[in-house]
Design a protein around this nucleic acid. Structure first.
Lengths: 191, 191
DNA sequence: CGCGCCCGGCTAGCGGAGTTAGCTTTGAGG
DNA sequence: CCTCAAAGCTAACTCCGCTAGCCGGGCGCG
């Protein structure tokens, strides 16, 4: 009986693929093991358990998302950058419906790659907001607003909270336009 | 051995209390049964199963939330109404961390009370947006934007995605102010 | 080239969650 | 007072995560 030749890398990336196929909620160690042609307990040689797997998935997805956001914003500024980043954000969530939810997990402080990925993601957002003249506490507030709006939209969309799919694109476009408006005249702190 | 005297009403409302105490993820039929002083399978005399319970919980929470939103907006208009409604929304989510997540479920079409509760909630939002002169498709887009922003913020907050708790209030305040700005000059459709 | 040992696979078995089947018994209404 | 529907129960099954402990493949070193 030849060995499967797994390692943490292959386990996590296959888990990511599986999650995208069957949905985050349906991602199970049993399904993953069977997909990898291995008995369930064998996974424990590579990963500490279900929770650790989700954490690693979060690190992977956060890194991917950070890269896409950075790429989207590169070479653009202001509203252009904002729209490009927002589109990239939603596109990632739609392309990877299983791994996207894991990006909401707070990064594991003991995993340097995870922490770095999280910093890259907010760094990309900060860079765009700097184009609106937002820095310091204002940038913190605006970052939270941007993340809230985009994540909220995607969560509602994924939950089926909206009606006709065709119209959803327009609503997203309007949301981003609204953010642009808000950032242009972001209320002064303490206002 | 005297009967416990349960019915669907008492089961669901106790589930709501339990969910708020232990968290939505930790709400389990086993825990609920033990809380009600009954064996687990007995619950099936009142509820079809775990999924049906969550659906009923959703109906309950949606109705409560709709009432709070309506009350908050009553007698106010424009930015005042928006701020009051946004505060009520977040207050509900914080006061009922277990039942709030269920409000994201799409209403069960076969449960008239659930459907009606959902309509009341978006009706309350529509009424506030009408104060900004938003109607028709614009109101649909703006409603989605508002729900996205508020829900997204609460989701990130609950996930621990923000830092210092003290600052979070300010960020929420700024988010709502940004929404006010956006709604004041909501981009024309087709823009 | 051969041999030892590490490590990645396995089987067995536990506890917890949800669900179903089918029995018993309470207690309200005729 | 007696019937009977409904409300409780026990037992048993499935699926999931996890732990313990065994086994053998194949790499590294003598």
């Amino acid at each position: 009986m030849p060995r499967a030749g797994l390692n943490q890398q292959t386990v996590v990336s296959e888990a990511a693929r599986l999650a995208d196929e069957v949905g985050y909620e349906q991602l199970t160690l049993a399904a993953l093991a069977s997909r990898l042609g291995v008995a369930l307990p064998s996974l424990y040689k590579h990963i500490r358990g279900a929770d650790a797997l989700n954490q690693k998935l979060s690190a992977l997805a956060t890194a991917e998302l950070a890269t896409e956001l950075t790429t989207a914003a590169a070479g653009r500024a202001g509203g252009d950058a904002l729209r490009a980043m927002a589109d990239a954000y939603r596109a990632y969530a739609r392309r990877h419906p299983g791994r996207y939810p894991t990006t909401q997990r707070v990064p594991d402080p003991s995993d340097p790659e995870h922490v770095e990925a999280g910093e890259r993601a907010v760094g990309a957002i900060f860079a765009v907001l700097r184009g609106y003249g937002l820095t310091g506490d204002d940038a913190v507030d605006a970052t939270r607003a941007l993340r809230s709006a985009l994540h909220g939209f995607i969560a509602l969309e994924a939950a089926g909270g909206f009606g006709l799919p065709r119209e959803v694109d327009r609503s997203y476009h309007q949301l981003v336009a609204g953010l642009d408006t808000a950032f242009r005249s972001w209320p002064a702190r303490g206002a």
